[in-house]
Each structure stands twice: as structure tokens, then as C-alpha cells.
Amino acid sequence: MSHTGYVMASYGTAALMVAGLILWVFADGRGRRRELKALDDAGIRRRSAPTTAGEPQ
């Protein structure tokens, strides 16, 4: 009795899921960078960013 088909389908499914997760993280990272750039262009800064003298916090 051979379980080759089951094993190959399992590995294929796992590989597709890992590839999907990698693509999702990559696309989400690009989206976050785009949102941060839009906020930065609008003048909204991070609280952890250093401020200059006289600039409102």
C-alpha cells in the first residue's frame, strides 16, 4: 500500500500555504510603507521621532 499521493498532496498544500503567507507579508509591508509615507507627507510624525526646538509635539 502506497501513501505517495497523500504525502505529495500534503507537501504541495503546505508549500502553497507558505508561498501565500510570504506573498501576503510582502504585499502588506508595501501597503504599510505606502500608508506611512502618506502620513509623513501630511506632516504627521511618530511620537518617537526627535523634535526640534519650537516645534509643537
Rank of each mutant, 00 (worst) to 15 (best):
D28G: 03
M8Q: 13
G5T: 03
L39Q: 12
I44R: 04
A49T: 01
S2Q: 11
P56S: 10
F26L: 06
D40K: 09
G5C: 07
L36R: 14
G5W: 08
G43T: 05
P56K: 05
L23Y: 11
I22N: 02
A38M: 15
I22F: 08
L23F: 14
G31E: 11
Y6D: 10
L16I: 03
M1W: 13
S2K: 11
F26A: 05
F26H: 03
A53D: 08
R45I: 07
G43R: 02
E55S: 14
A27P: 00
H3M: 13
T13I: 11
R33D: 13
S10N: 12
F26K: 01
T4K: 14
L36N: 13
R46I: 01
M1H: 11
L36V: 05
G54V: 01
L39D: 06
A49C: 01
R32C: 11
D40V: 03
Y6C: 06
Q57I: 14
M17N: 04
S10Y: 10
M17W: 07
I22T: 06
R45L: 11
P50E: 12
T52C: 10
G12S: 09
R47L: 08
R34V: 02
V18M: 12
L16Q: 03
Q57P: 00
A38V: 10
E55L: 09
R32L: 15
D28N: 07
L36E: 15
R47K: 06
R47N: 01
G31P: 00
A15C: 08
V7H: 10
G20D: 07
A15G: 05
L21R: 02
R46S: 09
G12Y: 03
T51F: 11
V7T: 11
L39A: 12
G54A: 07
E35F: 11
R33L: 15
G5Y: 08
I44A: 11
